[in-house]
Design a protein around this nucleic acid. Structure first.
Lengths: 192, 192
DNA sequence: TTAATTTATTACCATACATCAATTTTTTAT
DNA sequence: ATAAAAAATTGATGTATGGTAATAAATTAA
């Protein structure tokens, strides 16, 4: 229990909770470990959980009408990830969530999230701030996609997320940057 | 005062407030009317307000290193708009906010937002849900940019936001879709 | 209403990135 | 350790969209 409380303080950084609150939080979060290659959410699923990443690497991706994959988000230590659109709106997932490197995750279900909001109102603010940041990050990415060349986007990516590149396949990254693996290969070659 | 209360109920749809709460909200929102062409936020500004759009049309856009404009968001009736990144993080704006058609807006300052959160906690949830939706919309746009051709993006846009196209210049829309005005012109020609 | 200015269109050519196919390298499984 | 499978690289060629410039249309101002 002590060790679990420590994790909680890591997940909810900069917040202080009473003993009782920590217990509530602990029992709302379900720890799971998952093997590389696992598909945790599949298109069409109902999505009941968002996941805090303690360790490992994963991604959400969408398969378009031509069968091409598009990586929407990567997740590494300390990030929250899920198909947010499905999670928030209670619609079926349009995304897949794939484990890229063995993961330890903490799952927070919709019910438990509501429960936390009600029992520990300060969490409301915590999640809101997380969302605000995610929103800002998305906005930045839209701008990058609109204004930068593939090479510029690649450089910015490896600069911003140096820990991710090592853990993902070439084509995971390419499909995040909006180019083909071949193009990414050529970009890398040119940069050497 | 009565007419103002009506507005409030429009802004905070599906929420019910006491007389006193309505008074608090009314005094937190500042109504302004602005003429077409006005630049309400300029790159480098500190951003103290987010704006609810009662009427009119506006956009946020970024100017990249090559001097090219990129429209990040349009705003029409019933939307909230600002440079969210600057507003949330208290950093200088990287965006400009431009009035495209005469607008009536309600400004909510950061201080007043905090005040509302504290005095009327249910607003917390209201804003959170707004953010969740905005987040989902952004995600959808990233996917569209990754997986669709310019023509497909154009068609989806005019389908999703039929009211916006009429109010904006060709190059506003082009810079939103990530193409040049010339390309948009050609796309439209082909579609006829 | 006319002139001035802004915006949209069109043509021609350039380029970034895609596609296809073959080959090499790396990873995984036995 | 070796074979099999998956991933990455490379070359040749195609295509969507960009850039430039000239013209036409629409909007604004006088």
């Amino acid at each position: 229990m002590k060790s679990n409380s420590l994790k909680i303080s890591e997940i909810f950084k900069n917040m202080s909770f009473s003993e009782k609150e920590i217990e509530i939080i602990t029992s709302s979060l379900k720890k799971t470990t998952l093997k590389k290659g696992t598909i945790l959410i599949k298109e069409g699923d109902f999505v009941d959980n968002m996941y805090y990443v303690e360790s490992g690497c994963l991604r959400t991706f969408h398969i378009d009408v031509h069968g091409k994959e598009h990586t929407v988000q990567f997740g590494i230590k300390d990030w929250w990830i899920t198909d947010y659109t499905a999670y928030f709106s209670s619609e079926k997932a349009i995304m897949n969530l794939e484990i890229l490197q063995d993961c330890t995750l903490y799952a927070l279900s919709k019910n438990n999230r509501e429960l936390l909001y009600n029992k520990i109102p300060q969490i409301h603010k915590f999640i809101r701030i997380k969302l605000e940041r995610a929103y800002a990050a998305f906005q930045k990415r839209i701008l990058a996609n609109l204004s930068q060349s593939a090479t510029e986007r690649y450089l910015e990516f490896i600069n911003t997320y140096p820990d991710i590149e090592k853990n993902v396949k070439n084509y995971h990254l390419a499909s995040y940057l909006g180019i083909t693996t071949e193009s990414l290969s050529r970009i890398r070659k040119k940069l050497n």
